[in-house]
Amino acid sequence: MIRFILSRLVQAVVALLGVLTVVFFAVHTAGNPVRLLVPQNASAADIARLSHQLGLDRPLVDQYGSFLLNAIHGNFGYSFVQNQPALNIVLSRFPNTVELAAGALVFALALAIPIGILSAVYRGKWVERVLMPVILVGQSMPAFWSGILLILIFAVHWHIFPSSGQGGLRALILPSVTLGSISLATVARMVRGSFLEHLNREYVRTAKAKGASMPRVLIRHVFRNAFLPVLTILGMETANLLGGAVITETIFAWPGVGLLTVQAVQSLDFPVVEAVVLFAATIYILANLAVDLLYGVVDPRLRIQGAD
């Protein structure tokens, strides 16, 4: 078990080094941030001085070396814009993103699991014919449109929920629905497919031969078996949500990691962009590791030797 986790951590370090390299060269070829930082009438000497101050006049390879060395120590330098350690800025935004991600996941799962199960059990019946289009609509509506639509209806027209910002449960609902409806469709389809497959399995026939009722067959037998593939999707969805929902956070002015990303990229705030990307990648890797460990909890066949 410990060996498994260790080997996964080694893989994670390699992946993160790769991510750091790609993001470094990507941002440094994106443009010169100094021009955005100085006043419009700044002289060439001013620009050169600021470039020197930020270390941007050094050879790229040289910058890359010190960037990597510092990044390993968790130091991404100071934000060009806010004059604070970049990683601190990212971390301070993270709780907001967690809040939104949790809201979106709760919304998505609360609907996706029943919808998926019902449309599998009542395959070809009217229940499925009503539910599937709902899922399709959820999946095909982009967040920048559905978000604005929701604001228009529930904030502008009916004044039920605030249109933007963070604060309390009421403010959380619209962004959660917007962000969650994409995951909702993905998860519901996965649940439906997996349940359909498992409903035809032999062990289901055995359960019916015991005299088990359909709810019992579904809850006691199919649910756990069919949930394994759903778990994989769920891990990826969670990682995506925690990495920051760029569009949704922008629409609702939600002060999370996603909004920070947009702001940092727009102002070419290299240290913050680098910290955000590394942070998102780390979350992604950790979420997938968590899913792999959860597999073992759900399915005894996948338990790693010596864990039990």
């Binding site: 399995r201 062990y203 399915d299």
Partner: peptide, 15 residues
């Protein structure tokens, strides 16, 4: 009651 051909798959693997 009934027993089936494939004992490998007739039991719930997670129970």
């Amino acid at each position: 009651s009934m027993i089936f051909q494939e004992p490998m798959v007739a039991l719930n693997p997670l129970m």
